Structure formats: structure tokens, C-alpha cells
Amino acid sequence: MDIKDLKMLIKMVTETDITEFELENAEDKVVIKRGCSSAAPQFQMQAPVYQYAPTAPAAPAAAAAPAATPAAAEKEQGDVITSPIVGTFYRSPAPDAAPYVEVGQIVEKGQVLCIVEAMKLMNEIEAEFKCKIVKISKENAQPVEYGDALFVVEKL
């Protein structure tokens, strides 16, 4: 994107009632915001985004069994924390880092349990209440669907 295009975008924003404008393509991301804190519109360029792609160990043949549904997990005793989005489940913030939680661990409300990556965005899944982790239903780097059981927990 050249300076002429940027000037045209800034002029468009200042001549309308738009307070925020965002444009993204394969090479650039431009965000123009205006408001009472500064008289002139601002823009910023985004740094390159790197995808988190840990190498997962080869799954044994026994792991090929179908995953438990949320209803089946509830029968195991406890509440189920499900995936709010479609993406890839990660137990830790980086491939060489320790997992956020382990089975038997007590977690506080708001504590990060895992990450679900969707479209190169890392979405932290937090505990909505104080609980004890009874079961981790997904393997690291495993794809998840909306509503899939991620954890079986016991409310405290």
C-alpha cells in the first residue's frame, strides 16, 4: 500500500462520521482511528504473525477410538467445559512450555485452561468458576469443533 492510498483512506475517514476504519490484505493491515484524544487520524502497520504449530507425538492405535461427546463426559461425573469455537486445541502456550493445567489440579475462576487456535488467533479458554480438573478430553494439537468437550471438571 503506498502513501497515496493511505492519504485517500485518511481523507475518507475525516470527511465522514466513521470513528474507526480497518483494512487488511495479504501484505498490510491498516487501522485508522479518530476520536477526542487526538485531532489527526492514526494508522499502524501490523508486524508479521507467526503460527504456533507444535509437533505432536504419533498417536497410538488405541487413540483412534471416537472422542467422547459432552453428554458422555457428563456421565463420568462433573461438569464439562466445551470449546466455544472451531479450531485447534493446545494445552500449553508454547511447544516447550508446561501445560496450563493437569488432571487433579484445582483452578481458580479466570485461570487459563488451554488455547484454541482459530484462523491464526490464539484464544485463551478460561475457567468460569473454581474447579478441579477431573479429565482432559482432548490431546494436544487436536482439532476441536464448537461444543466439543475439552475438560471434565468438578465445581468447588
Rank of each mutant, 00 (worst) to 15 (best):
E128W: 03
M1N: 05
L6T: 04
A58C: 06
Y52R: 09
I18N: 05
C36A: 14
S92Y: 04
V13K: 03
V153W: 01
K75V: 14
Q44T: 15
P60Y: 06
R34L: 13
I106S: 09
A26H: 08
S37M: 11
E126D: 10
Q42V: 12
Q42K: 14
S137Y: 05
M1Y: 03
L113E: 09
Y100C: 03
L113F: 10
I32P: 00
T88Q: 10
K132T: 14
G110D: 10
R34H: 12
K120Q: 11
I85L: 15
T16S: 15
P60C: 01
G87F: 02
Y90S: 05
P48Y: 07
Y100G: 04
S137P: 00
L156P: 03
M45P: 04
L113D: 07
R34Q: 15
T82E: 13
I133L: 02
E22C: 10
I136F: 13
I106W: 02
K138D: 05
A59R: 15
K130A: 15
V152I: 13
G110C: 08
K7P: 00
A39E: 12
Y90Q: 06
Y100D: 05
A59G: 02
F129L: 10
K109C: 05
K11V: 12
V80E: 01
P93F: 04
Q77L: 07
A94V: 04
A59M: 12
N123I: 07
L156K: 12
K4L: 08
A149H: 01
P57E: 02
K75I: 08
P93W: 07
D17N: 15
E24N: 10
P66T: 02
P54Y: 03
V116K: 07
S137F: 08
N140T: 09
E27M: 06
A47M: 11
T82C: 08
A62D: 14
G87E: 05
M122D: 04
N140F: 05
K7F: 03
